[in-house]
Design a protein around this nucleic acid. Sequence first.
DNA 1: CTGTATCCTGTTGGATACTG
DNA 2: CAGTATCCAACAGGATACAG
Lengths: 111, 111
Amino acid sequence: MEKELDDTDCPVTATIALFGGRWKLPILYILSKNTRRFGEIQVRVPSISKKVLTNQLRELEADGLISRKQYKELPPRVEYALTDFGKTLCPLLIDIAAWQRKSIDNLTKVK
Amino acid sequence: MEKELDDTDCPVTATIALFGGRWKLPILYILSKNTRRFGEIQVRVPSISKKVLTNQLRELEADGLISRKQYKELPPRVEYALTDFGKTLCPLLIDIAAWQRKSIDNLTKVK
DNA sequence: CTGTATCCTGTTGGATACTG
DNA sequence: CAGTATCCAACAGGATACAG
């Protein structure tokens, strides 16, 4: 009866690896609303540098959560969107946002 | 109509700050099952050092998600448990675990 | 048992400049 | 516009030793 985490500890850890990055959840949330260009994402994630944003996007792409479509134009245009797999996270994003709204008192109280 | 993240981007970020640490979600999950002593947690979170575990526990405590009860015994005993506030995260933990189970194929595929 | 203190290394992330 | 390249500082995290 000491096996209670074999099914959910490692899984939880694996999931965290997907969107545990400091900016990944916000990015996923933004893309859940709209396909967005690089600059649009950057504007919507305050105080993230191009370097870090690039890195986070690459990781999300490598994990199959988002897609990257590059248009061969001048000036260049790149659009990011959730993949079908990434879209399966949307309910979770909504739950997290709902939990936060419910708990905002506690959050601000501690701060 | 460009306000879609004022309500949920920052909130998501704030929530991530609570359990975004690499080990926090596993720790919370473990404590959602049982009150646990320091050593018990350490055994159940593979390859976490005492230093990091201590740090994560302190942060979770500071955020009001877990409580720390120290017994003045020899040898010392310390028990960690979810606070009422921490318990409100349980449904979220369950959702995350459920999502992972549903998506394990994609997860292993990408790896 | 439950930590703290110290040292040390690797990674992360900011600033800046540059490219196609 | 959408990055890449480079340098650098700060912090995270492991190993080890020690303490109450």
